[in-house]
Design a protein around this nucleic acid. Structure first.
Length: 281
DNA sequence: CGCCAGGGTCTCG
DNA sequence: CGAGACCATGGC
């Protein structure tokens, strides 16, 4: 136990909002997980982050304690849905994720519920990953290691038709036909185009990767939830994918990705509250 | 049991 | 370009 950081955070919202899929809450309400291969245990005290285990600098960076939440909140659109999400999720942060791990988990995410993305992530870790010293769960396998795996092993992890995509992407990276670090200097539209060359990465998944692993806080992943919300904001008026994307960018402002994440988590929280039998999904 | 899930890709108009 | 079929799997 050490002195808390001073930055405000809602740890549960941050870790359960469908950004990362491998954190576990302990009996004492603290959270255990990995940042890359570094075991971490953190908790919340007076809405601030307390470190029990792990390097402080790495943790502060991963949890994006430098993001200006007040400025971001002030930039939220002034409509009922956005403001409701803002007050419900105050303190939620967009994590800075390791690029490969984020890319891989969102390749597996298509047409899957959050609960199942989690189970696939845990299965891949357990089956192919390696266990850091003193960690309960295993680290996500590197793309080199995953490239040496097989499609049938990945199907055993529950990936279904996504297995081939993940394997092929891992091989492209292992053969250095694309470098996730080198492309980080590209401007957002070009970076999005680079990411979508990877098998299993379309515009939606690319926007998740841009937002969660490349600090592009204006990137807006439009999944089924956000799609419905945007339609409601437009008064039920339908449109093409590109029209909706343009609308989202204009409507949600400079921190559109943040607004999107708050809307997503809030909408899912409301639905979970209606069915108490279901756990965290 | 039927529906839906943080969609991508290929085909066809 | 834009719309539709198809893709596996599990939670609800």
């Amino acid at each position: 136990m050490t002195t808390p950081f001073s930055a405000r955070i809602d740890l549960a919202a941050t870790l359960q909002s469908g950004q990362v899929f491998h954190w576990n809450q302990n009996a004492d309400a603290s959270w255990s997980g990995l940042i890359g291969s570094m075991p971490v245990r953190v908790s919340e005290k007076n809405r601030c982050l307390v470190v029990h285990e792990g390097d402080h600098g790495t943790i502060a960076r991963h949890f994006a304690l430098d993001h200006p939440l007040e400025q971001i909140a002030a930039a939220f659109p002034n409509d009922p849905m956005s403001q409701a999400a803002l007050s419900a999720c105050e303190g939620m942060r967009i994590l800075r994720q390791p690029r490969w791990e984020c890319t891989a988990t969102f390749i597996t995410s298509s047409m899957k519920q959050v609960a199942h993305i989690r189970s696939m992530s845990l299965a891949i870790r357990e089956r192919i990953g390696t266990r850091p010293e003193g960690s309960k769960i295993q680290a996500y396998p590197s793309f080199e290691k995953l490239a040496g795996s097989t499609e049938s092993v990945l199907r055993d992890c529950g990936l279904g038709y996504r297995a081939a995509n993940l394997l092929q992407t891992a091989r492209i990276l292992a053969e250095d036909r694309l470098n996730l670090d080198t492309i980080a200097k590209q401007k957002t539209p070009m970076l999005r185009k680079s990411l979508t060359t990877l098998p299993g990465v379309g515009v939606k998944v690319a926007n998740c990767i841009l937002l969660f692993a490349y600090e592009r806080l204006d990137a807006v992943p439009i999944d089924t939830w956000i799609h419905r919300i945007l339609l409601t904001m437009r008064g039920g008026r339908h449109g093409t994918a590109t029209e909706l994307a343009n609308y989202a960018r204009r409507r949600l402002g400079p921190y559109a990705g943040y607004v999107q994440q708050y809307l997503f988590h809030h909408a899912r929280s409301l639905k979970r509250a209606k069915s108490p039998t279901s756990g965290i999904n």
